[in-house]
């Protein structure tokens, strides 16, 4: 009898949680949503400084290079409203996805489709916080954006 109650309770919890998640009423973003990448003109591969902090008008932007050894720099600290640009110089397809692999739920706007070598993605970070990400195709390559 106790076993049946526990199984029933577990099933009920699972069903309720599933309904909440599917209908999106639990306050969570739809998992694994991949907004189309915001392509900008391809940046030529560089082997020199991989961090550029340029002020363009009133908006700032920071560039992160994805190479074969990972994201460079792995950590960038920016002000709110800064655009972070990821340039794929890895020689292969890559992605930028929010932590945690493989559900990518911590910050869904940071989930992008695969982008080929030579292409770029960008995202404007409006709110302070620490945003961890990784390459889904090579999850040991990680990075983070610290927004002040």
């Amino acid at each position: 009898m106790n076993n049946k109650i526990l199984i029933g309770a577990g099933a009920l919890i699972a069903v309720i949680a599933a309904v909440v998640l599917i209908t999106g009423k639990g306050g969570y973003q739809t998992p694994i949503t991949n907004p189309p990448p915001t392509p900008i003109k391809s940046a030529p591969p560089t082997t020199t400084s991989s961090l550029t902090n340029e002020a363009t008008g009133s908006a700032q932007q920071v560039t992160v290079m994805l190479t074969q050894s990972g994201f460079e720099p792995a950590t960038v600290t920016v002000k709110a409203g800064t655009k972070v640009i990821w340039v794929n110089n890895s020689g292969d397809m890559a992605t930028v996805n929010s932590a945690v692999h493989p559900t990518h739920l911590v910050y869904p706007p940071l989930n992008f489709d695969q982008f080929p070598n030579g292409q770029s993605l960008s995202l404007v970070f409006d709110k302070p916080g620490t945003y961890k990400y990784h390459d889904h195709l090579n999850p040991s390559q990680t990075g983070q954006v610290i927004v002040e």
Binding site: I7, G10, A17, A18, Y28, A99, V100, T103, T130, K132
Partner: peptide
């Protein structure tokens, strides 16, 4: 039920605490 539980729970086990996230 076990399979369903693990699937559902993997979407709610991440801790929205900065710098600390469990593998879901």
């Amino acid at each position: 039920l076990f399979g369903i539980f693990v699937a559902v729970f993997s979407f709610i086990t991440f801790l929205p605490i900065q710098n600390f996230q469990l593998d879901p």
